[in-house]
């Protein structure tokens, strides 16, 4: 009885990570296309306003909401530590997504750092 339950929880955590990554990619893409000004709170707020007029942001927001709903469900079911340890693979998704969709240059140093963080979070969450 326990096995299919566990499988469901794991798949849901992977799904949350994927949705969250897609949301971040959409947000970053919109910000890249926008001339985001950061000098002073007024400029920042007006940039946020223009950002909120971008359809892509809402697409990202939908994925974010989806991710949040699944995450809330997972938290009500699974152990917090277990959920967080698996959620750390989210960092790998982000790195791959940044390279593929945002054309960011992820060099050797950044990969080592990212993988080190994933190992660290897994250890922290499981200990």
């Amino acid at each position: 009885m326990i096995k299919p339950q566990l499988f469901l929880i794991i798949s849901l955590i992977v799904l949350t990570s994927a949705c969250d990554t897609i949301a971040q990619l959409f947000l970053k893409k919109s910000i890249n296309k926008l001339n985001f000004e950061t000098h002073g709170i007024k400029k920042i707020l007006s940039s946020i306003g223009r950002l909120l007029l971008t359809p892509r942001v809402y697409l990202g927001g939908m994925f974010s909401l989806l991710s949040l709903s699944i995450w809330l469900y997972v938290l009500s079911k699974a152990d917090l530590n277990f959920a967080f340890s698996l959620d750390s693979m989210h960092y790998i998704f982000i790195a791959v997504g940044s390279v593929v969709f945002l054309k960011e240059k992820v060099g050797f140093t950044r990969w080592i750092g990212t993988i080190s963080i994933v190992i660290g979070i897994t250890l922290v969450a499981l200990s």
Binding site: V106, F108, R110, I112, G113, S116, I119, G120, V124, S127
Partner: peptide
């Protein structure tokens, strides 16, 4: 958990250094 924290700190140092480099190594 301390070991995990060390891993995370090392990772953060690596990632933040990578953004200071002008060109990625790969």
């Amino acid at each position: 958990r301390w070991v995990g924290i060390c891993f995370i700190i090392i990772g953060i140092i690596f990632v933040s250094r990578s953004s200071k480099e002008k060109e990625a190594l790969l």
